[in-house]
């Protein structure tokens, strides 16, 4: 049997005959799925960017209440991180793959996105953890410094706060590096393999 015969057999199959579709329910489901997808993206953005802006508001409020410049510093760090995330999201949204692009163009833009995500997570220390850590560190030192003469307990409180923060930040950093190793690196390799198949 040659290829033309295979092609003939292939084209004679009536794939659609094996399926009955209720178009009305389907349309309802497609619309619901689309809304669900949009809601998921929206709430993910709100969750991630929202935390930074909530911290900003909280420390801004604290600073105004106590007239404490160290709180303003943390609020400023939160605002900076939140703004960076919003700008990054806006820029990346423009580069999102379009499903009706050619396969190659779609794979290329997906690869760019995955590479950008990897870059973000690998550098999370610099754009997310360090601004908060530095501002919070200064704030802790500033608030415990006046109590330095009140003896050992004040120092202990300062050290425990610093250790707690360090542990929390290490946890965040570790989780993000895990995400790169387990999800993003394999995806990048998969996309690179696909792209290599087209080059």
């Amino acid at each position: 049997m040659n290829f033309e015969d295979l092609q003939k057999a292939w084209q004679s199959q009536d794939a659609g005959a094996q399926v009955t579709i209720n178009a009305d329910i389907l349309l309802k489901e497609v619309r619901r799925n689309q809304q669900q997808f949009r809601a998921t993206i929206f709430w993910r953005d709100v969750r991630e960017v929202g935390v930074a802006f909530l911290l900003t508001l909280f420390f801004l409020h604290q600073g105004m209440r106590h007239h404490d410049w160290a709180d303003y510093l943390v609020a400023f760090a939160g605002f900076g991180v939140g703004t960076f995330m919003v700008l990054d999201r806006l820029l990346q949204r423009r580069k999102q793959p379009v499903s009706n692009d050619s396969l190659k163009a779609c794979i290329e833009s997906s690869l760019l996105q995955v590479n950008h995500q990897i870059w973000l997570l690998k550098n999370i220390f610099w754009w997310y953890l360090l601004p908060f850590a530095a501002a919070l560190g200064i704030s802790i030192c500033y608030s415990t410094w006046p109590a330095r003469n009140s003896g050992f307990p004040a120092v202990i409180v300062g050290v425990i706060s610093a250790l707690f923060l360090a542990l929390l930040y290490w946890g965040i950093y570790w989780l993000n590096q895990c995400a790169v190793r387990r999800a993003l690196d394999p995806r990048r390799q998969e996309l690179e393999t696909l792209l290599a198949g087209l080059e």
């Binding site: 399926v19 209720n22 389907l26 309802k28 396969l103 794979i107 997906s110």
Partner: peptide
């Protein structure tokens, strides 16, 4: 493009409200 981006593990979480598809 959808098939290339589709990943089996991720999609298992999908919930469906109504059945629109009937396989013969």
């Amino acid at each position: 493009n959808t098939a290339l981006a589709w990943r089996r593990v991720e999609r298992r979480r999908r919930e469906r409200h109504e059945t629109f598809l009937k396989l013969d």
